[in-house]
Amino acid sequence: MSELTIEIDVLRYRPEMDNEPFTQTFEVPYTAEMSILEALQYIKDHLDSTVSFRWSCRMAICGSCGLMVNSVPKLGCKAFLRDYYPQKISLEPLANFPIERDLVVVMDDFIKKLEEIKPYIIPEKEKCLSEGTYQQTPEQMAKFKQFSMCINCGLCYAACPQYALDNKFTGPAALALLARYNRDSRDNGEAERMKIVNQEEGVWGCTFVGYCSVVCPKDVDPAAAIQLLKVESSKDYLIGMFKPD
């Protein structure tokens, strides 16, 4: 068993010495239960300690280890060598983001977009602590729960050609998060957020490719969130025609 190996191509980029990325091939011992992330850890521990990649929880909760596995956005901890063996695996940093170093990307734009959509509950009026909690029924929670499962891994941005073509587009995860707050019964910030939605760079940058929902490791379905927001934006447009703000 321990004799089996698998070849892994890693796209390397060292900003202090390289002008552009290059591919380095490693041979890693293969076992059926080994994840891509574990393979990378093996490379770092035993073959080349200079390889950089992000990781933390190892169980698809932290959203740190996103990368391109054979050009498909995946979490390293949730993709397994057995699904590729005996073929060679190619690992590249998440597409559509600038490369910081090796498999590490610059996610600043993504984080900025998450912040811009006002991802917090905006209540109708601030309640005093003594007045108790904001309550919600399970049915009210069901309306947004799916869209709240995002772990900010960025796979959907790597899957989105519209973001690749024009990174002014707000993008899948941020719009799904926006839908999550707009659909929350405790929230009253819809009017503020619809201004973001209604823009060209809001939902209208989306052409419903649908790949974001395919690659999402948490089944958030950002494509659905965006389609529902398009319907809301259209209603808002009609209302705006009769009642300009």
Binding site: K195, N198, G202, W204, K230, S233, S234, Y237, G240
Partner: peptide, 15 residues
Amino acid sequence: EKTYKRSHEPVFWGL
């Protein structure tokens, strides 16, 4: 506050 520009896409999207 950032200024937001409404898109006219809903007209075309509806059609």
